[in-house]
Amino acid sequence: MSTVTLRDVKKAYGDTPVIHGVSMEIQTGEFIVVVGPSGCGKSTLLRMVAGLEEISDGEIHIAEKLVNNLEPRDRDIAMVFQNYALYPHMSVFDNMAYGLKLRKLPKDEIRAKVEEAADLLQLRPYLERRPRQLSGGQRQRVAMGRAIVREPSVFLFDEPLSNLDAKLRVQMRVEIRKLQRRLGTTSLYVTHDQVEAMTMADRLIVMNAGVAEQIGSPIDLYEHPETVFVAGFIGSPAMNLLDAAAFPGLSLPTDRGPLTVGIRPEHLVVADGGPIGATVDLVEPLGADTIVHAQLPTGDALLIRLPGNAKVTQGTTLSLAPKDEAAVHLFDKDTGRRI
């Protein structure tokens, strides 16, 4: 069963199109991450689902109901904002209870629901505090709590962790994911952090300039990027994407027009007599692995990720080979699409 369906959803501000038609089906309980660079339209897409932004064209269904013309409150969604958007003059309890109060639930039921959510999020001791008396992570949890108590069919998150420091971000990302699994609520999560995207998502939507470049599971996207953009965006360090001419040693199809060749840094191995020769510019030993910045004879830069115990010295020339057949990705240079 699908909870959210997008059919060729488009958005234009005046004459400027910002979303060029996105279609997808989100299954019940799925955690979908929308990822892409700044300004690609992630927030706009999410806000259209929320009903905060009008839809220029296409259809959005939530829980089998066409919601194009419904107010946010009638869409059965809850949203967590980047800056939390907590009501500063209300206590934590009132922040979480506000939506329920507006729904005219009985007082004791509201209290029960809020306290349950507070326990789930370890917010019990803070219920009487104001948001400004909380740390960033606690505020984040209150924002989550406000979404949870409503028991919506869909959670929407717009970069909820981007204001937290790196360590807390990792911790919260795990908490959010656990919580979502436990509640089984369909979620749409926007981020521009591809690590966050890869670790959290059941499925990913990679957006670029208002287009959904590819939709699929993280591993799918990693192993079979459909476009040059996705190839370069997913994975860290980023995939080496170079003209075919940079790899004279590889046997590449010649009948397909100009090609872009992509090889991930971790898919290159040192091999005697390997087809790729590269001069080492810089070595970054990270412990678990070693990142090597090298230069190809054509002058192009090449990143290589070797095991942590690899002994590489600056200035030497390495012979490298792709790990296996699947390690070499070929794209049409003009369209950027996978071949």
């Binding site: 929320a50 905060l52 809850a78 949203m79 904002f81 958007a85 003059h89 939506g99 507006l102």
Partner: peptide, 23 residues
């Protein structure tokens, strides 16, 4: 007053006048 608050209130189900009075 940040726009996000207005949006949060809309999602919480507040009408315009409720938002005015409550926030």
């Amino acid at each position: 007053i940040p726009d996000e608050l207005m949006e949060a209130a809309r999602i919480d189900g507040a009408s315009a006048m409720r938002f005015l009075v409550d926030v």
